[in-house]
């Protein structure tokens, strides 16, 4: 499995505060990868480091085999749509396309023109007058028409209403289907990612709690409900992700490749959101072991 992004003990410090510390992560190629985690987990910092917006304080990071942002060629291979999708308020839509054309050697003018026409953006419209959804679409157009090998999007839909959100993600999916590039997308809303991501990374406090293909994650996670039982008495191949107990009853979220035969348990599947929440809540030591397991 080739990687689009590899980070080893990566860290970024602002003054005395570490925004990202000792982060080791591996993002496989050919996927739409969702990066999810609570606020302050270091998602934005990690993505900015990958885009070459920031210089690491510690550790190292390679994106598509090169140092992020080092050369124009490296910049050309990685697209980046920043949080809040900034555009130049004073420039028109046509100016933005021209900007992209002038500054990118691999610029695909047809893709850009066609997308802008399909979105109904007037070339003479000032970007400052666009709605939030249109602005995000314009920023995405710039990112797509650059024809990157990896497109990084940092919370691109966080500020959009549900309809604009769906249109944005749909546009992204269509482009991925057509041009086949890798996508790394962050969000703190699992529902957004569920729709489009086929690979998920849960990042909590700079560390990967779990990572894997979405379908496989869903297939290997189970919620067990039954009479109260000590976690030590669970089979060795069942890794406890989270546990809660009442006087008589225990509820476990476990991960296992093997089927569960114990008749004492009521076994149910988890939604992706529950799965992510279970990993965010769970004790770090156990889940780190679990994360290693999946990265294998």
């Amino acid at each position: 499995m080739t990687s689009v992004l590899e980070a080893r003990a990566l860290g970024k410090r602002y003054g005395r505060r570490w925004a990202l510390r000792d982060c080791t992560v591996d993002v496989p190629a050919g996927h739409v990868v969702g990066l999810v985690g609570p606020n302050g987990a270091g998602k934005t910092t990690l993505l900015k480091l990958a885009g070459g917006q920031l210089e690491p304080t510690a550790g190292d990071i390679t994106v598509l085999g090169g140092r992020p942002g080092a050369t124009p060629a490296q910049l050309a291979r990685v697209g980046f749509v920043a949080q809040d999708t900034p555009v130049y308020a004073g420039l028109t839509v046509a100016d933005h396309l021209r900007l992209g054309e002038r500054l990118n050697p691999r610029w695909d003018a047809d893709v850009a023109r066609e997308r802008v026409a399909r979105l109904g953006l007037g070339p003479g419209q000032r970007a400052g007058r666009l709605s939030g959804g249109q602005r995000a679409q314009l920023a995405l157009t710039l990112g797509l028409a650059k024809r990157p090998e990896l497109l990084i999007l940092d919370e691109p839909v966080a500020a959009l209403d549900p309809l604009a959100r769906r249109e944005f993600l749909q546009g992204l999916m269509e482009a991925v289907a057509e041009h086949e590039f890798s996508v790394l997308l962050s969000s703190h809303l699992v529902s957004d990612l569920e729709r489009i991501c086929d690979y998920l990374i849960v990042l909590v406090d700079s560390h990967v709690r779990v990572a894997g293909e979405t379908e496989r994650l869903l297939a290997t996670h189970h919620r067990l409900t039954g009479p109260r039982r000590d976690p030590g008495r669970l089979p060795a191949d069942q890794h406890v992700v989270s546990a809660s107990h009442t006087d008589r009853q225990s509820t476990y979220v476990v991960r296992t490749d093997a089927p569960i035969h114990d008749p004492a348990w009521t076994v149910s599947r988890l939604s992706l959101e529950d799965l992510v929440l279970a990993h965010m809540d769970g004790p770090p030591a156990e889940s780190r072991r679990a994360a290693l397991e999946v990265q294998r």
Binding site: G69, P86, L103
Partner: peptide, 17 residues
């Protein structure tokens, strides 16, 4: 202030240039 540096510094031009 407007965040547009994140847009322009991600075109295929190094920020030094």
């Amino acid at each position: 202030e407007a965040g547009t540096h994140l847009l322009v510094w991600n075109q295929s031009v190094t920020r030094g240039r």
